[in-house]
């Protein structure tokens, strides 16, 4: 889409050196500035604080240290840093948790280099990178929350009819442009709908976490 007017700084987090170095090299060759790499969530948070990359490419399946927790901490502490989850298929609940924790997108590890480069650019630009798989997960999550019955928390986020429609089309593999054509709306509106589904989910997650913390007397954050 847009040409790289400014170089995008990235950090690659993955516990597999072959993969980590490979992705770092792919991105460096295509003009990205790879600031750092990390092999676990703990190190990722620490290093991200110092180097402040625009985009963190986060693997979720890293043994003991969870990429989900690191995603949550990075997106809360560093507003200028976005997290793009790069994960293998079949880690559904983890991907969903990472997105709720603040990740702005999800890409399969089997994606091609072109798709990866495009996704990193879009993440840096503030767009949500939605694969069909992520759309299916997010749809499922909203429906799960809606299915908890009439006594559900009134603060539970819901999808508008349009948002549901858009998400379903994303999950069926249509591109933003194809969706815009089919629904006769602008490309930008499609992007906005997609982003709003994520934002509502993330906001709800933050509220839930805060409520949990207050109920359990954990709100006295020593850092503040």
């Amino acid at each position: 889409m847009t040409e790289t007017t400014a170089t995008v700084s990235v950090m690659v987090v993955d516990d597999h050196p072959i993969w980590r170095n490979g992705v770092a090299r792919d991105l460096a060759e295509r003009g990205f500035e790879v600031l750092a790499t990390a092999s676990d969530g703990e190190a990722a948070v620490r290093i991200a604080r110092t180097v402040r990359p625009a985009v963190v490419l986060m693997d979720l399946n890293m043994g003991a240290s969870t990429g989900v927790e690191a995603t949550g901490r990075i997106t809360t502490e560093l507003p200028g840093t976005r997290v793009l989850v790069l994960s293998a298929s079949g880690e559904h609940s983890d991907v969903l948790e990472a997105v709720k924790a603040g990740a702005s997108g999800y890409l399969l590890k089997s994606a091609s280099v072109e798709e990866l480069v495009d996704a990193v650019r879009r993440t840096a630009a503030g767009d949500a990178v939605f694969t069909a798989g992520l759309a299916g997960l997010v749809l499922g999550e909203y429906r799960r929350m809606a299915a908890t019955g009439p006594d559900a928390d009134p603060g539970t986020p819901r999808l508008s009819e349009r948002e549901t429609e858009v998400l379903r089309l994303v999950a069926k593999g249509l591109t933003a442009r194809q969706i815009a054509d089919r629904l006769v709306i602008s490309h930008r509106t499609v992007e906005n709908h997609v982003q709003s589904t994520l934002r509502k989910l993330q906001l709800h997650n933050r509220v839930e976490l805060a409520r949990y913390a207050i109920e359990h007397g954990l709100d006295g954050d020593p850092d503040e």
């Binding site: 559904h92 399969l108 069909a132 798989g133 997960l137 749809l139 499922g140 999550e141």
Partner: peptide, 16 residues
């Protein structure tokens, strides 16, 4: 259904 996934076929299912 996930078993049906290939590089050409993407399968999306709920997390639950």
């Amino acid at each position: 259904l996930q078993v049906l996934a290939t590089p050409q076929v993407q399968v999306s299912v709920p997390a639950t």
